[in-house]
Computed example of a mutant assay.
Amino acid sequence: MTELHLWLRHETRRTERRTPIVPADAGRLTGSGVTVTVEESPQRVFPVEEYEAAGCRVTAPGSWASAPPDTVILGLKELPEQPHALTHRHICFGHAYKGQPGAADLLRRFTTGGGTLLDLEYLVDDDGRRLAAFGYWAGYLGAALAVLQHRGRLTAPLTPTGKDELDETLRPAAGDAGDTDLTALVIGALGRSGRGARVALRSAGVEPTCWDLAETRALDRPALLGHDVLVNAVLATTPVPAFLREQDLDGPARRLRTVCDVTCDVGSPLNVLPVYDRVTDWAEPVRRLRKKPELDLIAIDNLPSLLPKESSTDFSAALTPQLLDFHTGGAWGRCRERFQAAISESAVTKGESRGD
């Protein structure tokens, strides 16, 4: 069996504080014979010295492009624009299989270089359940930010924090704006993100209405619009009717004032909230969709990075056993098959130019 060489890359997004492998789990990997190279990163929540102490090699940011061909490059979010031709196997969240903006170009980069995308969203067990996910903390933070916004206590720019500090801000206080009989709806309440959202809302003193598959099959739109806060935690894999439409925003019966789209599937034909065309971010976390009556949107696509230690530790604990079994096929084989199917579906062929 070929020795596995993992290369943990620096995340180029300035607000990405998470890591897919924490130092303690990097030590498990090196102790099992895996070579782990870690790029220095000014924003990663764990200092590179902790990885070095765990037996990892340390190298400069962005040097993965010249790593040996058999190296597996490990990251979380988007790859930098260069090099254009991707020659390695990359483990990350590619967001490239559902027609998202930039998807075709990313797949073309892999076919040009002969590399492979092993998308973490599609690292699943035999029943199709994801084996490593940030969903719980995404839902937790999404619901927390929605409540803080509704109560007039969300301040920008957002900064990373710890769970204890966040929970302290969530506790209801006398004089909170918009807090009289606050009602909240979580759609996708039984999934990972939905569970996190429910816990955060209860920490904020709000008992949420919980909808899942049964309730969305025959959507009660007036009931949806009759809540103050909506947290969408549904990641659609097949087309479904939109939960919220443009015409719903101007209806006279709308009580809804704050929407948090945890899924952030903007640009995809599977988007269940097609009422906005761009995500929000840490600098400007809230976008006003309507002035009268007010309707605010939160759609941040790296929510768990606001709780970087907690979310990274949980994710790493789930991913590490899969990395230890990297050469055994199974879930990683399914990742490869999904990549190959995406290449076939998009008709991307090696040798196409970027302008095609």
Rank of each mutant, 00 (worst) to 15 (best):
residue 193 S to D: 02
residue 181 D to Y: 01
residue 86 L to K: 10
residue 179 D to S: 15
residue 193 S to E: 03
residue 108 R to G: 08
residue 192 R to A: 09
residue 138 A to I: 04
residue 72 V to D: 09
residue 182 L to W: 04
residue 76 L to T: 07
residue 117 L to T: 08
residue 95 H to G: 14
residue 106 L to T: 05
residue 183 T to K: 09
residue 183 T to C: 11
residue 95 H to F: 11
residue 194 G to C: 05
residue 71 T to V: 13
residue 156 A to S: 14
residue 99 G to F: 10
residue 127 D to K: 11
residue 206 V to D: 08
residue 142 G to F: 07
residue 106 L to Q: 09
residue 201 L to V: 02
residue 162 G to H: 09
residue 189 A to D: 05
residue 91 I to P: 09
residue 192 R to K: 13
residue 144 A to Y: 02
residue 121 E to Y: 05
residue 199 V to E: 14
residue 197 A to F: 02
residue 157 P to M: 11
residue 94 G to A: 15
residue 189 A to T: 06
residue 98 K to H: 14
residue 119 D to P: 06
residue 91 I to N: 01
residue 148 L to C: 02
residue 154 L to W: 08
residue 122 Y to G: 00
residue 154 L to D: 12
residue 145 L to Y: 03
residue 98 K to T: 10
residue 202 R to V: 06
residue 91 I to K: 13
residue 136 Y to S: 06
residue 88 H to L: 09
residue 73 I to S: 07
residue 72 V to W: 06
residue 129 R to W: 00
residue 155 T to Y: 01
residue 138 A to P: 02
residue 196 G to N: 01
residue 145 L to G: 08
residue 135 G to T: 05
residue 107 L to Y: 10
residue 185 L to P: 08
residue 181 D to Q: 11
residue 168 E to N: 00
residue 104 A to H: 14
residue 83 P to L: 06
residue 175 G to Y: 11
residue 88 H to V: 00
residue 93 F to N: 07
residue 75 G to F: 08
residue 200 A to M: 04
residue 128 G to I: 11
residue 134 F to E: 07
residue 175 G to R: 13
residue 196 G to M: 01
residue 171 R to S: 12
residue 82 Q to W: 03
residue 142 G to E: 06
residue 187 I to S: 07
residue 198 R to G: 12
residue 181 D to W: 04
residue 115 G to M: 06
residue 129 R to T: 12
residue 178 G to N: 13
residue 90 H to Q: 12
residue 126 D to S: 12
residue 166 L to M: 14
residue 187 I to D: 09
residue 157 P to E: 06
residue 191 G to P: 07
residue 130 R to V: 04
residue 107 L to M: 13
residue 205 G to C: 06
residue 86 L to M: 04
residue 172 P to K: 02
residue 163 K to L: 15
residue 148 L to Y: 02
residue 181 D to G: 14
residue 133 A to F: 04
residue 110 F to G: 09
residue 99 G to Q: 13
residue 173 A to H: 11
residue 180 T to H: 10
residue 146 A to R: 09
